[in-house]
Simulated assay, not measured.
Amino acid sequence: MNIPYCKADDTGRIMEYGSLSPYTFLHRLDPAYVYDPVGVTPETHYVSDGMVRERPRMALQRQGQALSGLPDPCAVTINGQPYAVTGGQVELDFPQPGQYQLVLSAWPWQEVALDITISGPDNNETDPS
């Protein structure tokens, strides 16, 4: 039976995970590795104080094009273009109708992806996600 493991960088980001054979495990004992984590993925977990922990979820609140409850600071990426946000909130202003893909990120919180469709010249939102 293989032994699950993960290894994180100095910030706790999981850079490597998988499982080792018992033979490899005995020859690879290393304090930089965490052994026996179950269900670990870099998207949902990180390492803190030698323990695997679930990455917290953002307390995101959305009203129209205003987002609040964001970690401070964080990044809001709109259609691939990142913007720095401080203060835990942002008012989005889309210049023209279309679909916009947003990714909200701040370490160690789990990333949030949103799709917003603006339908007309008055920037009315038609397809909130």
Rank of each mutant, 00 (worst) to 15 (best):
L67E: 04
L67H: 07
L67F: 01
L67T: 07
S68K: 01
G69V: 07
G69F: 04
L70H: 12
L70D: 13
P71M: 14
D72Y: 15
P73R: 04
P73D: 01
C74G: 01
C74E: 13
A75P: 07
V76P: 03
V76I: 15
V76T: 15
I78L: 11
I78M: 11
I78N: 12
N79S: 01
N79P: 01
N79G: 09
N79T: 06
G80H: 06
G80E: 13
Q81G: 02
Q81P: 01
Q81C: 01
Y83W: 14
A84E: 15
A84P: 06
V85D: 11
V85H: 05
V85I: 11
V85M: 08
T86Q: 15
T86L: 13
T86R: 15
G87C: 03
G87D: 11
Q89M: 10
Q89N: 05
Q89F: 05
V90G: 00
V90Q: 02
E91G: 01
E91V: 10
E91P: 00
E91Q: 01
L92E: 12
P95D: 00
P95E: 06
P95V: 08
Q96Y: 09
Q96S: 01
P97K: 02
G98W: 15
Y100H: 04
Y100N: 13
Q101A: 02
Q101E: 12
Q101P: 05
Q101D: 07
L102I: 11
V103N: 13
S105V: 14
A106K: 04
W107L: 00
W109S: 06
Q110W: 04
E111W: 09
E111H: 03
V112N: 08
V112M: 04
V112T: 10
V112Q: 08
V112A: 10
A113Y: 06
A113W: 12
L114T: 06
I116R: 01
I116E: 13
I116G: 00
I116F: 11
I116S: 01
I116C: 02
